[in-house]
Design a binder for these strands. Sequence first.
RNA 1: GGAAGGGUGCGAGAGUGGUUUAAUCGAACGGCUUGGAAAGCCGUGCUCGUUUUACGGGCUCGUGGGUUCAAAUCCCACCCCUUCCGCCA
Length: 408
Amino acid sequence: MLDIKLIRRNPELIKEGLKKRNFDIGLVDKVLELDERRRHVLKELENERAEINKKSKGMPSPAEIENLKKVKEKIKILENELGLIEKDFNAAMYYLPNLPLPDVPVGKNEKDNKVLYEVGKKPKFNFEPKKHYEIGESLDIIDTQRAAKVSGSRFGYLKGQAALLEFALINFALKKLVKKGFIPIIPPVLIKEEMMKGMGYIDTEVDREERYFFEKDKQYLVGTSEQTVGPMHSGEIFEKKDLPLRYISFSSCFRREAGSYGKDVRGVMRVHQFNKLEMFSYSKPEDSVSEHKLFLAIEEELMKELALPYRVIHLSTGDLARPSASTFDIETWLPGLGEYKETHSVSNTTDFQSRRLNIRMRSKNGELEFVHMLNGTVFSERPILAILENYQQKDGSIKIPKALKKYM
RNA sequence: GGAAGGGUGCGAGAGUGGUUUAAUCGAACGGCUUGGAAAGCCGUGCUCGUUUUACGGGCUCGUGGGUUCAAAUCCCACCCCUUCCGCCA
């Protein structure tokens, strides 16, 4: 959620930011109008309340009580009016996405994402490199056929060496991150509606369509562990010295993949369920940009150790998720497919989520300030596919990356 | 699933309709003070009024409604926690 005070004080700045995201800026004017009406009614209402408070201090006489009853009726009417305005006002406020940071490339969609740099050498093969799903099938380590039989499309069994590879990858990364001071955590994968709302993932119909929801229990399945790690400290106030607070969390992730029907249909590149190791940080506002860079640097460090070729993308304003103010993706080279595929995503959501979840810190002058919240992929299952394609040998076997040997 | 108890500020904890404007103790931070510190004193949430200050108003005792001139306190619904029973990896 954006700061209403900032919207009031500097609507042009807000409009400029939202225009970059191709957002209908008419809503900003609507918010301002609703805000004005809200404050107007609120003032009237508070005046009446003050009246009652003043008179009710002692024991009012029967005549006074009669009078106050009339004031109360007025209050009821005003409260009703205010309630209606606030409903619209809140709906509009929750619909506004985060403002992009100044250095985010401006664009219409993912085609305008900016490639920042490429790292690593693409492997050369003296044979036709196979695609990950071909490898998975021929080595009998990824089974989507039986998964379809049991669970439906877009599921997979990772078995044998593929399953071991996942554990190796996770252990390798987990050990590193714990050494760096991240707190390891295994979070719940079911989340209350209120908290999902707080994280900003069900504000639009499109967003809601993407989530699994259990009607009976009014709970969502998380699409990423960020969603249950973020609200962990909702309503809390951090001491400045305790920030940044960094977590490394591991969970299964669930996505309906609504609207991606034609995409990545082979293998387990895009599935309804996968495991992911994720970094999360609560940061001082003034440090979030450097924290964002740190997260990206950690991702790159791990990728370099695996010697996987990748490139770093700065998402354009047109491709940014609603809560994000800036996002970098890592795309890893898959020689079998002959293309780069998104394997990592690291975002700074600034105070967009913390404002909704009321997560603050006490700053130097004793004032309270909303913290900034960041999240970033360490490893999902996609890098396993990248390893299969990059480390394949002529005889059809897969070399294990050096960094993973002791974990497998 | 059944039964009972409970949720008060950063933490502990009092308060069962009207000097409670949320007592008291502790913590952290800021200010005053100091050569510097300790101690001491003052302050500390959200929001509105014209930006800041100052001052004033409203809100805030899990959440949302309700009763009342007046609610932390009474009523209803919901959320969550603890203990016991049942089930269970």
